[in-house]
């Protein structure tokens, strides 16, 4: 998955999940107030093995195996954050976070504002989303938008191991609640992770590829697929620019607007449902900001508007592919 032209030394490349683990390790080392809480994260090492080894290193007080009770896990994190701890919650999937939605929306997101800045909630909620593993209707959705619409939250979705580590470190150091959206399909992706202590700012999109014909904005794993699609479109003489949104809240409009003003065309892709989706928000914002520059309507691509089906061919048909992205781009550039 690494996009560097020169083959890096093997030691420079790391798995996305390992990059996350390094961030947790280093931040827990750096700051005693950081602790982890979640289901099966200690002895078992986490459903996706992100927290493996951390219990042995930091002990049960800082790596807390919690009951299967998402609402109180998040509530507990909030209360402890108000007293100065920096909890990092792991929820097994974003689908399960709906059980804790009240705590996230009514408390985590609102406390700092509602108490006139007298209190703050420095916490991170990590959770994977996304489909592609035949996990069916209740374990496969992306749902970025339900957090993206809540003022008071920061919502990020890193797509590379480098960003996973750097953004998780920034999230842990942030004084605001951060929804840290991982993707099940990215845990085994390899990429270069810079050595040493570094952070990647929250709230910033990343330009993944420069191009002049069309801007593709991708959300979470769809940014990776958009990049693949753009590389393949080269052969068809379509020069696509790819922006990895990275931050769902706030949206980093500047690079998106600058790009669309240059290309005059825009395609937005997410794995979640595009109706009322993140792509809907981006499309509306681009239309407002770039109307005079647009040579074609902004187009959206999202997952099929159904609960995720189990059967492999049905599931494949429900998730956007790089082929789907290419088709839409061809339509937008008139090829």
């Amino acid at each position: 998955m690494a996009t560097r032209t020169q083959a890096p030394a093997a030691t420079d490349e790391k798995l996305y999940r390992v990059a996350l683990r390094e961030a947790l390790n280093e931040e827990m080392e750096r700051d005693d107030s950081v602790y982890l809480i979640g289901e099966d994260i200690g002895k078992f090492g986490g459903a996706y093995r992100v927290t493996e080894g951390l219990l042995d290193r930091f002990g049960a007080q800082r790596v807390v195996d919690a009951p299967i009770a998402e609402e109180v896990i998040v509530g507990c994190a909030i209360g402890s954050a108000m007293l100065g701890l920096r909890p990092v919650v792991e929820l097994m999937t974003i689908n399960f976070s709906l059980v804790a939605y009240d705590q996230i929306v009514n408390n985590a997101a609102k406390i700092r504002y509602m108490f006139g800045g007298e209190a703050k909630v420095p916490m991170v909620i990590r959770m994977p989303g996304g489909a592609g593993h035949q996990l069916s209707a209740q374990h496969s959705h992306s749902l970025e938008v339900i957090y993206g619409l809540i003022p008071g939250l920061l919502v990020v979705a890193p797509t590379t191991p480098e960003d996973a580590k750097g953004m998780l470190k920034s999230a842990i150091r942030s004084d605001n609640p951060v929804m840290f959206l991982e993707s099940m399909s990215l845990y085994n992706v390899r990429g270069i992770v810079p050595p040493g202590d570094y952070t990647t700012p929250l709230g910033k999109a990343a330009l993944r590829r420069s191009g002049s014909d069309v801007t593709i904005v991708g959300v979470s794993r769809m940014a990776v697929l958009a990049h693949e699609a753009a590389k393949q479109l080269e052969e068809e003489d379509v020069d696509a620019e790819v922006i990895d949104l990275r931050s769902i809240r706030p949206i980093d409009w500047e690079p998106i607007v600058e790009s669309v003003r240059k290309t005059g065309r825009c395609v937005v892709v997410e794995e979640g449902w595009s109706t009322y989706g993140v792509t809907a928000e981006i499309a509306a914002g681009v239309s407002e900001r770039c109307f005079d520059y647009l040579d074609a309507p902004v187009r959206r691509l999202g997952g099929a508007q159904v609960p995720m089906p189990y059967s492999l061919p049905l599931e494949k048909a429900s998730i956007p592919t790089s082929e789907n992205i290419k088709q839409l781009v061809r339509a937008v550039v008139g090829k």
Binding site: G75, C76, I78, G79, M82, L83, L85, Q103
Partner: peptide, 11 residues
């Protein structure tokens, strides 16, 4: 009530 648990943990 869940927040009280976290306050207890903080304490």
């Amino acid at each position: 009530t869940p927040i009280a648990v976290g306050l207890g943990l903080g304490c």
